[in-house]
Nucleic acid binder design. Sequence first.
DNA 1: AAACGCTTTACATGTCCATGACAACTGAGT
DNA 2: ACTCAGTTGTCATGGACATGTAAAGCGTTT
Lengths: 230, 230
Amino acid sequence: MSKQRILVAEDDTNIRNGIFALLQGEGYDVCVAKDGEEAIKRYTERKPDLVILDIMMPKKSGYDVCRAIRAKDLQTPLIMLTAKGEEIDKVLGLGLGADDYITKPFSTRELVARVAAVLRRSAVAVEVPAEVKDVFKIGKAEINPKRYEVKTKEGVSSLSDKEMKLLQHFHLHPGEVLTRDVLLNAVWGIDYFGNTRTLDQHVALIRKKLGMSADAIQTVHGVGYRLEDI
Amino acid sequence: MSKQRILVAEDDTNIRNGIFALLQGEGYDVCVAKDGEEAIKRYTERKPDLVILDIMMPKKSGYDVCRAIRAKDLQTPLIMLTAKGEEIDKVLGLGLGADDYITKPFSTRELVARVAAVLRRSAVAVEVPAEVKDVFKIGKAEINPKRYEVKTKEGVSSLSDKEMKLLQHFHLHPGEVLTRDVLLNAVWGIDYFGNTRTLDQHVALIRKKLGMSADAIQTVHGVGYRLEDI
DNA sequence: AAACGCTTTACATGTCCATGACAACTGAGT
DNA sequence: ACTCAGTTGTCATGGACATGTAAAGCGTTT
């Protein structure tokens, strides 16, 4: 799974930097905003998987930002930071659609736990509409995404996470030439700066596991790869 | 299946409207009551599939309404809203027969999750009397869900609650790769805020008790676990 | 206080994957 | 056909990260 992105909107520099460092340390891709307007801007340009909103902010309050986001998008989970418990009634009462809240002051443990829990819930709720969960074929090999396995005449081999994602992406675009950029973005995440040879390496592994059907994944010299559709 | 109907009894207008909008947005057929007497009236005329009751209400308290409903009907699930943790003891202690409770303030996600969970349970209770209650096998070990025991060639060991739930979940999805998220949601509940390593720990314990059949539960690196089906 | 179940921490172990080197290949231009 | 530069296949390896495992902490029950 590629890194999950979190937008943190908080005006207090200390708290903002603290949360930034904390979440980044936990392996998230974090972007920040120091007021409500910036938060909305960052939201539209970065499309984060989770938004953490302070309520008291200059320009636009957390309430306003929440409404603005919910107007466009009902999916993305949202955590509010509040100074006092009472304000929660407002959050709920106004039907703003926040997913969780944390009252200041909070412990780092608490923040990390809630962030993880909210992301976990939303991951399950979405239940991966973009991905394929049913058995499909590549060449004469059968891919089983639920089991992370590929079955060929030669036998059954198990697939690693990246291998599975690559195969799924090929299957979703049969016959199309997929450039390295596209594949790297799809499997490794949108902002992957690594060596492009990594991709070749994984293609090679996949071909090995496909056995006879290896040539179903053709290389298009100077461009990328292509799944043969028969 | 037609829309499921939910009755919400809550005196605070903001919260009532918030819950109303939230649940309606989730696709439920929602009706509301602003005090205890109205709640009982609405209940008898609408026969909802689920009742959400605030405890502190004018005219009749949530306790009273709960008792009144349970006097006629033991089926319909019931969720109590409480302001403080202590009151919960009363709810449970009085044997009122509430199915779940939520302490204020709560997040929208939490409410939605619990509503869905309670409705799912009651649906299951009507259709299928139990989850897995018969003896089943994992590898060469025999699991007895009624006795919370596992029998292997080496002998018999007893299983804890979580261990049993985990094993049942594996047994219900043989061969499938189950992600940590899915397992945590299934066994620990949707609003679990703990460490993901807890799961690993329990898997380790289960493997120990499975003895020789330990490798029936395979780990899929970077994804989760998988029960080998032979 | 002792036992138990669950969680958390800490450290050991293992797996996968990113990376670089080099060989083999491709295609365009001669 | 041959050359050559750029691209891709393949292999080997170190390191980052996920998992295994033991032990300690914590709250509840006996």
